[in-house]
Design a protein around this nucleic acid. Structure first.
Lengths: 143, 143
DNA sequence: GTAACTGCAAAACTTTTGCAACCAG
DNA sequence: CTGGTTGCAAAAGTTTTGCAGTTAC
């Protein structure tokens, strides 16, 4: 296989099983890329290129499936910063984002604002619930 | 033409000229739809359908051109809430949004949070500037 | 008259889907 | 085995583009 350590491999297997997903070759390889290198922000295309670059044989359709499945099961969080492309964040904790509109790069920030408190100021319609409070600071090169 | 009052028509003409845009038939009609009915949130498709419904003859390509030109010149503000579709807001003042993920409806809210203050907590890279601080509260039907 | 603008169709992108082949348990 | 998964190609949805024809000034 590759140089994944045995216990890391087992961790990833458990993580997938806990999420109700079979630990297939593709999902293991993608989970390893996503979760074994700190907090990351990827797009389908960037993860696809990275996988191919690492010699992981996987189709783009599977990348999309996997990113969506990981997001549904709480392993990833989708970050909406661009109206033409989906970004996914391996950090699922409450935090905010800085988006560089020139490069498409996303950074995490902790603005220590209370999403609960913000949410409490919203008049939530009957039978609805707040699924998230997203904060994005947009950056661009000056001039 | 239609039942636009003369002075309203003139207002719109000035507004377009001030933005450096020729007041063409299409732009006048779209500006009227957008700015004569309070604060609105539209997509290219929704504005296109509305225009056709009102008997305004305009192509979808022109809707896209117009929305982008209006946004560039500050007449509209783009609201990024969906990674597959662009929304435009006629309210260009500082405010936040509530997005209903089931219906795609957007509402304005004033959370009276200080974007300047939030922005001041960000480490802005050399030669870059903050172009906006976006806050979106996401809603979904419970269950 | 001329540069700006518009419409149409085609192209470019991102994402989803249908289905046969494949694989984990 | 058998249902979940994958890959491929095709389709779907949104947005942009190229360019001939039109319009504002």
């Amino acid at each position: 296989m590759n140089d994944m350590h045995e216990h890391e491999h087992d961790d990833i297997v458990s993580r997938l099983r806990d999420a109700g997903l079979r630990p297939t070759r593709q999902r293991l390889a993608l989970a390893d890329l996503l979760f074994s290198h700190g907090d990351r922000h990827v797009t389908a295309e960037s993860l696809y290129d990275e996988a191919l670059g690492q010699g992981v044989r996987v189709s783009l359709a599977t990348i999309y499936n996997t990113l969506n499945q990981f997001t549904s099961s709480g392993l990833l969080r989708e970050v909406v910063v661009d109206s033409g492309k989906s970004y996914f964040d391996t950090n699922t904790e409450a935090h905010q984002h800085v988006f560089n509109e020139d490069t498409g790069a996303i950074d995490d920030v902790q603005l220590s604002l209370d999403a609960e408190e913000l949410a409490s100021r919203i008049a939530v319609p009957e039978g609805h619930e707040i699924t998230g409070v997203d904060v994005v600071v947009r950056l661009r090169r000056s001039q």
